[in-house]
């Protein structure tokens, strides 16, 4: 009955969280997942998020078994 949450790059370092599970029944959308996973930390500007490996906006609805990730703008290539 959980949602898996991952953080990358600066977010992982600043929050000191690599991966955490949150209760699915307490989370309506991705913003709720951020609040639950970080203990209510402010969401930095320009944070990007994904739901089940696809880029999605923060108001995306979530459900049990989802994998949510938060990360800064990507800089590959």
């Amino acid at each position: 009955m959980t949602i898996k949450v991952k953080f990358f790059a600066t977010l992982r370092e600043n929050l000191k969280i690599d991966q955490v599970d949150v209760a699915a029944d307490e989370a309506g959308d991705v913003v709720d997942v951020w609040r639950l996973a970080t203990g209510g930390a402010d969401m930095p500007e320009h944070v990007l998020c994904s739901v089940n490996l696809e880029h999605m906006p923060p108001d995306t609805r979530v459900k049990e078994g989802d994998e949510i990730a938060f990360f800064p703008p990507v800089t590959g290539g």
Binding site: F8, A9, T10, A69, V74, T75, G76, G77
Partner: peptide, 25 residues
């Protein structure tokens, strides 16, 4: 498209050993 969508992040080590994340492409 890779630059926009692929989830990679670069962290540089400068000549003085200071580290910093690359913030944008």
């Amino acid at each position: 498209a890779l630059k926009t969508d692929a989830t990679f992040w670069k962290k540089e080590t400068l000549a003085n050993d200071k580290e910093r994340w690359v913030e944008k492409n």
